[in-house]
């Protein structure tokens, strides 16, 4: 999968976000096995320790669970996935509102513009 990182924030946080997004959008399904640390590190071109930290944090937050030798899996917790989805949704909408605001549109005007756009 394609990994994109910006250089201002710690990479482990960005990995966590991107994995959460994958879970929210259904790219990663509940119960699905996550690739190994090394594989992800190679694919993303980042330090394995960074990946390890990200995955451990995701485990701590309940998005992933690990089974000793079998590896790491996406949590079956639907609620988590839904939470992430609504979280991301809000993030995107916040960004939209902010950007439209820069163009001079108030939130209501932006909403109207969006309805027009959808039609």
């Amino acid at each position: 999968m394609e990994w994109k990182f910006n250089s201002e924030a710690p990479i482990y946080l960005q990995i966590m976000e991107q994995i959460k997004a994958q879970i929210a959008t259904g790219v990663l399904k509940p119960g699905q096995k996550i690739a190994a640390v090394r594989e992800i590190a190679l694919e993303a071109g980042v330090n394995p320790n960074t990946v390890q930290k990200a995955l451990s944090e995701l485990e701590r937050e309940g998005f992933l669970y690990s089974e000793r030798t079998a590896g790491r899996f996406v949590s079956d917790n639907k609620e988590k996935a839904e939470n992430v989805q609504s979280e991301l949704c809000k993030q995107y909408m916040d960004a939209f509102t902010e950007n439209m605001g820069k163009l001079g549109y108030s939130p209501k005007e932006a909403a109207k513009k969006y309805s027009e756009y959808v039609e």
């Binding site: 250089s7 201002e8 924030a9 710690p10 990479i11 482990y12 960074t50 930290k53």
Partner: peptide, 13 residues
């Protein structure tokens, strides 16, 4: 690297 980015909000570069 993480500390630098977190504390400074910018890349090491």
């Amino acid at each position: 690297v993480d500390d630098i980015r977190e504390k400074n909000g910018k890349s090491v570069d």
